[in-house]
Lab assay of single mutants.
Amino acid sequence: MPSETPQAEVGPTGCPHRSGPHSAKGSLEKGSPEDKEAKEPLWIRPDAPSRCTWQLGRPASESPHHHTAPAKSPKILPDILKKIGDTPMVRINKIGKKFGLKCELLAKCEFFNAGGSVKDRISLRMIEDAERDGTLKPGDTIIEPTSGNTGIGLALAAAVRGYRCIIVMPEKMSSEKVDVLRALGAEIVRTPTNARFDSPESHVGVAWRLKNEIPNSHILDQYRNASNPLAHYDTTADEILQQCDGKLDMLVASVGTGGTITGIARKLKEKCPGCRIIGVDPEGSILAEPEELNQTEQTTYEVEGIGYDFIPTVLDRTVVDKWFKSNDEEAFTFARMLIAQEGLLCGGSAGSTVAVAVKAAQELQEGQRCVVILPDSVRNYMTKFLSDRWMLQKGFLKEEDLTEKKPWWWHLRVQELGLSAPLTVLPTITCGHTIEILREKGFDQAPVVDEAGVILGMVTLGNMLSSLLAGKVQPSDQVGKVIYKQFKQIRLTDTLGRLSHILEMDHFALVV
């Protein structure tokens, strides 16, 4: 994948999101292997301009796509893939009243899908469409860049269908997702969380590099694949309309690839034109409109599966009536509230959605109805927002919020430890010299600072030695090549209790 991002070429006709291997024109390309080798690009942008032909009021008969309808489940399912879809609609009884809503608040519980998330729908649909058009064949390999849930859905379907599955996901995604993927037989590649989507090191860039190296491999490409919004247009939206008897006044959905909100909203605009569509985008993402909503100094966020630093091709923002931004604290607070007060075992993005819903639905009156999409299960986040310690460490809970008995030293300040200034190293000294210094002084790690004293990161003896043994660096290389740029900081005025929580999850903390 090139470091400079080429513009994806656009073909003359058809839909841009065809499933299957992508040609340089962004659509299915038939021909000899030699032709494909000559024409197939190194990668295709996940934010390529959409060429979708959908228009409100256009006859369904003019759609270029294969459409399906929700099917009634048999008493005995032939395999677990038949437990994807037909998820329950559940009334939220307490939270709406707590925040003064007059309307009825309903939750579409997508964590009841077989793999635990709304992404099971698009995973199965992308595979079925690729099999139907002859792209996927027995023994082929599926590769997908994902925040985890699409990966789980694909790995689940691949396990049943017999495909090899490789999932490329950023490091910030939970260990629970990784464990589930491994249990399903998927191979996992992790990428830096802070890598831009168009960087060769991003999950998108690495996935395309693997595709170019592995024979008979395919990126189904949830960011561009029409099967993504079509899955929701054909099934999720129809289920909502049936469950609500066609009567709903507002739908609120958090947005990642945009397939969920695009597919549902398009069908609702056709069948229930008075329904307002509300999009939820986390602070630090750029999906919301108008652009002024996205202006923030924050560039990272903890909530998973929603928000991006690019506009995915499948996201149709014209069908969203209003956007709201959400933050991590309210997302996790509301997710825990949904679990504790409503018994809905949902993930953090569901918290984002409901946090926005109780604001947006203030305009609705008694007798009206708001539906929220709860995308995934708490299963993926047992060591994250479900953990009091994690919430404390991230600053989303305060010590006084917890009532468990603490040891005698818990409320003492870090400054009472009488710490001395640490050994520091410059980023320009060599790895070999740094190892000598650390061994001589008896230290395992040291902060790396520039000549102005600005902290650049941390270097550890173990990481340097393993990097040297693996051949990633040489003793003569500058130590700046092996620094940890993500590390926890703590102030002298913070409590030892807070430091204790940090050290339970990290090997060190830097006192500043």
Rank of each mutant, 00 (worst) to 15 (best):
M169A: 05
R91Q: 09
P215I: 05
V168K: 03
F197K: 08
W43Q: 07
K271T: 14
A60W: 11
L77Y: 05
N149Y: 01
E40D: 13
D47W: 02
G26T: 08
D245C: 14
E9T: 09
S3H: 10
D238E: 11
I167N: 07
N93A: 08
K247T: 13
G258M: 00
A69T: 12
L230N: 13
P59E: 10
A207R: 00
G96N: 11
R121K: 05
E270T: 05
I127Y: 06
K39F: 04
L241T: 07
H218I: 12
T146A: 04
L81V: 08
A69M: 08
E40T: 10
W54A: 06
V160C: 07
T193I: 09
V204H: 09
P192A: 01
N194C: 08
A237Q: 06
L248Q: 08
K25P: 15
G85S: 07
K30R: 14
D198F: 06
S23A: 13
H17S: 09
T5V: 02
I166E: 04
R45Y: 02
L268R: 00
S63F: 15
N113A: 05
T68H: 10
K177W: 00
K211T: 11
T260E: 00
L136V: 08
L81W: 03
Y223D: 01
A38Y: 08
R190G: 03
K211P: 09
S73H: 11
G57M: 07
L154F: 05
A226H: 07
V255E: 08
P59H: 09
D47C: 03
T260N: 04
M173R: 06
A114G: 13
A157K: 03
L106Y: 09
G185P: 00
H232L: 05
M89Q: 01
K39Y: 03
S63R: 08
L184S: 05
S117Y: 04
W54F: 08
P59K: 09
P145C: 06
V168L: 07
P33G: 11
I261K: 06
L220G: 00
Y223A: 00
A114T: 11
K39P: 11
I261W: 02
C15M: 09
T5F: 09
P200T: 08
S61I: 06
A253N: 07
V180K: 01
N216W: 03
A231T: 12
S73T: 15
E104L: 05
K94Y: 10
S254W: 04
D47H: 08
H17M: 08
K102F: 00
K83T: 11
H66L: 09
M173V: 04
T68V: 12
K267V: 11
Q222F: 00
N212W: 08
D140M: 06
T146K: 09
R161K: 14
D86N: 13
N212C: 13
L56W: 09
G246W: 04
L124K: 11
S63D: 09
S32W: 14
S19Q: 11
Y223V: 00
T150K: 04
G246I: 05
L101E: 00
E131K: 13
I167Q: 07
S50P: 10
A231S: 06
S19I: 08
S175K: 08
V204R: 02
V255L: 08
E176N: 03
G14H: 11
G14C: 04
P138H: 08
R161C: 08
Q7D: 08
H65P: 05
C165R: 00
S117H: 04
G116M: 07
T53V: 06
G256I: 00
G148C: 01
I142F: 06
T87W: 00
A158C: 01
R125N: 08
G20W: 08
S61Y: 13
I122Y: 01
K30I: 05
L241C: 06
E37M: 03
K269D: 02
E213N: 12
A157V: 09
G11R: 13
I44N: 11
R190T: 07
V90K: 03
R164N: 08
R266C: 07
D120Q: 05
K72F: 09
K211F: 08
D245K: 03
V204P: 07
H67L: 13
P59V: 03
P78W: 05
